[in-house]
């Protein structure tokens, strides 16, 4: 029975890995056989690729680093603060988190247009900093933290920020890495927001480049897709332990 389950999971993993394997394979394969011409065309003949690559790195890093403090403070408020309407407010957060992007993108665009942030990097970064996903996930983790540590910290100091810094964050370090990884991957993969909110090609991201790869000369689609998945893959490999622990932390408690 265990062998059968192992075989099924092996086959399933093969199915999931097939698109990635095909992408890597076709990045080196053209009509003439195996060549690196696609990488040559992309890296030495398609210079608009580089600004877009670094824009992706910049936006994903900035959003992840800025979202974490917001998410931690928000989750702390939902977990430990006592105020009227907390439950209803949290339900709104969940509804907002579950809303498809197509529903919220137009109000987002109108808001950014009125603030004069369309076609600026802030038009991409700011809405994502206040995404409800991280707050909801972090709140679930925070519910399982040891309240006695927080009470002890509150006896030492009246500053909420110090309490969070000294007692909450050390307990949730693993979960913070897991949330950061999810947020980075979500921001790295976003394509609708750069497509709609940015008109200047120098501000667009790699996901937009890949979606428009057919308009460039040379076989640049598959090599750009391979380069696109490397940073997230490296980040996952580096933080895979934390991700595993972070995802199971709630269950153990």
């Amino acid at each position: 029975m265990k062998k059968l389950i192992g075989i099924i999971f092996f086959l399933l993993s093969g199915v999931f890995l097939l698109p990635v394997a095909a992408t890597v394979f076709f990045s080196f394969y053209s009509e003439g056989g195996f060549t690196a011409d696609g990488y040559k065309d992309l890296l030495f003949d398609c210079f608009v690729f580089y600004p877009m690559f670094w824009n992706s790195v910049l936006y994903a890093s900035a959003i992840t680093l800025a979202q974490l403090p917001v998410v931690i403070l928000c989750a702390f408020g939902f977990t430990w603060a006592k105020f009227r309407g907390k439950g209803i407010l949290f339900i709104f957060y969940i509804i907002l988190m579950m809303m498809p992007l197509q529903v919220t993108i137009l109000p987002n665009y109108i808001g950014l247009r009125d603030m004069g942030l369309v076609n600026t990097p802030w038009g991409i970064i700011l809405p994502m900093i206040f995404s409800p996903f991280g707050a909801v996930v972090m709140h679930q983790y925070m519910k399982n933290t040891d309240s006695s540590v927080i009470e002890a910290a509150r006896l030492e100091t009246s500053s909420i920020f110090r309490v969070i810094l000294v007692s909450v964050i050390p307990q949730l370090r693993v979960c913070i890495f897991a949330v950061a990884l999810f947020v980075f991957a979500e921001c790295w993969n976003m394509v609708e927001q750069p497509m709609l909110f940015l008109t200047d090609k120098n501000l667009k991201t790699m996901s937009v480049f890949i979606s428009e790869a057919g308009s460039y000369t040379g076989a640049v689609l598959f090599p750009s897709a391979v380069i696109f998945l490397i940073p997230v893959l490296l980040l996952y490999l580096f933080f895979s332990d934390s991700l595993e622990k972070g995802l199971t932390l709630g269950e153990l408690s």
Binding site: F44, W54, L234, F238
Partner: peptide, 17 residues
Amino acid sequence: FTVMFFAVMLFLTFFAE
């Protein structure tokens, strides 16, 4: 590998053209 990847990308950003 991460440092090498980003170093290569940075080098190519300035010198590929």
